[in-house]
Design a protein around this nucleic acid. Structure first.
Lengths: 228, 228
DNA sequence: GGCAACTTTGACGCAACCCTGACGAGAAGG
DNA sequence: CCTTCTCGTCAGGGTTGCGTCAAAGTTGCC
């Protein structure tokens, strides 16, 4: 879910934005001034910032600089002023877009989508998680591929889903209830026989010696754990 | 040096832009219509495109789609129309920014700088994906052409769109829902029979042995994958 | 208006997958 | 030593999903 930080000191504008954004399944935080905005940006890590330049405590451009010091999150500037200089200043400070008030909500949302879309594939820190390697096989989470001995291993949807949950928690114990609910749905939780069957299939397809698993470890009575 | 492609059919606008851009040490190409624009984009690999929507030969939004089929180059749209719908349509088609005429040159240049700055750290070598070759056929994403046995293969619009999405994700699994939404629109997601029909057509036209596909792989229950 | 190309829809056979139940092995505890 | 519990393994049966073909519906062009 996309997280938006709205920064504006006019309550009615904030309200209008929050309503429209939440209706479109965005997660929204709001800040009435620059200090709060910088704090929230640091603590909540929004995917995009909508920033009004006219703030009570500091210059909007300073907020942009404050953000750009440590993050490349897209910044969409709102402003009542049409002056060209101000636009240039904000954009050169690091803003991604500039919309003058009064603005059309449709247009704003479209610009927001564009900003988010652009930033998408460069997800910070996510790239490390795309592939996991062991000495026996390689799991590529983005491509949904498993490689072993130079060949692709075919996994069924359920097998893949189970593997995905385990790999995303590499080294950590995943409880059987949690596994069941993540793979089969929230209404499951006691059907541990499913786990036994599918863990066996994964081991048969991926472990060098399926009866003495090295990577798919059983924690009796609790759950399973994936180890590199 | 940053390379800009200017697309506009009004000579005086092109002249003004070219003069201002060259004065700031940009390298500039210019195209008077959509067809030329797509050709130049493919041959010159600009770092940013400035695109007027009102072109003589094709709809500006089609130009955006044509570019987005194979490149993520920033697109800055110019338009005389202030209509909100048009902005939304252009932005959702993949444009990065939208400026209404008459525009201030300072502002345009600032937006251009912002667009270029954003795109900078993008992974290198991504734009070279204009053509993909297999031992059986060649797909040219920029020219929207498929070559096989020395001849062009005729694809319908839907077939092409489907192929494009798959090729853009070469090697990666593309979920059926994602395929449906990208090709047929956001309101689709369950009509998997469409996929079956059109995958069969693609295979018949491109695979050496359509009943044993080597490049268009089915991942049962999940989606499809294109492999070189 | 009529034709051609393209898209959508429905039906059918077949293979693959998911669920289920049964059985044995091993560990823990009385 | 027996009971109880959990896990691993296997094989059968119901169900789903895929490929294929053909026909109906739609669109665009002459």
């Amino acid at each position: 879910m996309t997280r938006v930080l709205v920064v504006d000191d006019e309550p009615q504008i904030v309200r209008a934005l929050v309503i429209n954004l939440k209706a479109r399944a965005y997660q929204v935080d709001a800040a009435p001034d620059g200090r709060t905005a910088l704090e929230l940006a640091a603590s909540r890590h929004p995917d995009v910032v909508v920033l009004d330049l006219g703030l009570p405590d500091m210059d909007g451009v300073e907020v942009i600089r404050g953000l750009r010091g440590w993050t490349r999150v897209p910044i969409l500037v709102l402003s009542a002023r049409h002056s060209s200089d101000e636009k240039v200043e904000a954009l050169d400070a690091g803003a991604d877009d500039y919309v003058t008030k009064p603005f059309g909500m449709d247009e704003l949302l479209a610009r927001l989508r564009a900003a988010v879309r652009r930033a998408e594939p460069a997800g910070p820190g996510e790239d490390d998680l795309t592939t996991v390697e062991t000495e026996g096989f390689t799991v590529d989470l983005a491509a949904k591929k498993v490689h072993r001995d130079g060949k692709d291993v075919r996994l069924t949807p359920t097998e893949w889903h189970l593997l995905e949950v385990l790999v995303r928690n590499t080294g950590r114990l995943v409880g059987q209830k949690q596994l069941l609910q993540e793979v089969w749905g929230p209404s499951y939780g006691t059907e541990t026989n499913y786990l036994r069957v599918y863990m066996a299939q994964l081991r048969r397809k991926l472990e060098a010696d399926p009866s003495h698993p090295r990577h798919f470890i059983t924690e009796p009575g609790m759950g399973y754990r994936f180890e590199k």
